[in-house]
Design a protein around this nucleic acid. Structure first.
Length: 255
DNA sequence: CGTATCCTGACC
DNA sequence: GGTCAGGATACG
């Protein structure tokens, strides 16, 4: 369930459970994860102290005292769950146990999530664009990063090198709020339109961050609403496919 | 640019 | 049985 707001919330859960503690073990329960972290790497984590947990775009960086970083990405599904004594759910793909005995589960139904270990000083997510909510990011800069793009704006918003953390839902939501047609060429957007888009991105991300209703589809204005009336003008919302992903938009008020 | 691929699960 | 799913990447 992870775009920026959901990852932000998950990072908070993980941080609260693990920050400052030493790792007792990291057990991998799915072959896809075992392919990514060799047994000797897992053993090397034992005893390492976790100094912090940070989010960068949709990436999660677990910093270790020895300088290494455990880099986690949820991809299409994924969440952290602090475990009690109940039996493990089927979708638990990894279990992180701390020296305190506390256990945190990596819950990932799709099993597409990734884990990597990076050495000290290695950029875990190279090429990642600016955070949407970074106040230093200006509409002018964003427009400049659109300029070399040839395709439509919607897929460009999903390009993490352009702007970090935006996914399929909030790209659609932001375009709806900015009243922009998702098929417009990114490079052709005027300065005023990019300003509206950046403001809309910040608005929808901020609104979703901290929301406890991140699984409630009814909170979306346009995403997933194909055939339903546009909340602004009443026209039927349409679904099209761009770059293999669904795009929802109002054909009447998104120009 | 589009398409396939990695996975599992929900739903028709 | 098919389609769809909040991601990212490799390839034609």
């Amino acid at each position: 369930m992870p775009e920026l707001p959901e990852v932000e919330r998950a990072v908070g859960v993980l941080r609260k459970a693990v920050a400052g503690q030493r790792i007792a073990s990291l057990k991998l329960l799915h072959p896809a994860l075992r392919r990514q972290l060799a047994p000797r790497v897992l053993r090397s984590l034992v005893g390492a102290r976790i100094t912090g947990v940070a989010r960068r775009g949709k990436h999660q960086m677990v910093s270790l005292e020895d300088g290494r970083t455990l880099h986690v990405h949820f991809r299409m599904s994924g969440d952290w769950k602090v475990l009690d004594d109940a039996p493990l759910a089927k979708s638990v793909r990894a279990v992180l146990t701390l020296e305190s005995g506390a256990r945190v589960a990596f819950v990932d139904p799709r099993a597409l999530g990734t884990m990597e270990i990076h050495g000290a000083g290695v950029d875990a997510a190279p090429g990642l664009g600016p955070e949407a909510n970074d106040p230093a990011l200006t509409a002018k800069q964003l427009r400049a990063s659109f300029a070399p793009k040839r395709g439509p704006i919607k897929p460009v918003l999903l390009d993490q090198r352009v702007i970090a953390g935006v996914g399929n839902i909030y790209a659609a939501e932001a375009l709806w709020h900015a009243k922009l047609d998702p098929t417009r060429k990114a490079a052709a957007l005027e300065a005023k339109e990019v300003s509206a888009l950046l403001a809309a991105l910040r608005k929808v991300l901020k609104r979703a961050t901290g929301s406890r209703y991140t699984d409630d589809a009814s909170r979306f204005d346009v995403y997933g609403r194909a055939g339903k009336p546009c909340r602004r003008c009443g026209e039927k919302v349409e679904r099209i496919v761009q770059a293999g992903r669904s795009t929802y938009f109002c054909p009447n008020c998104q120009l």
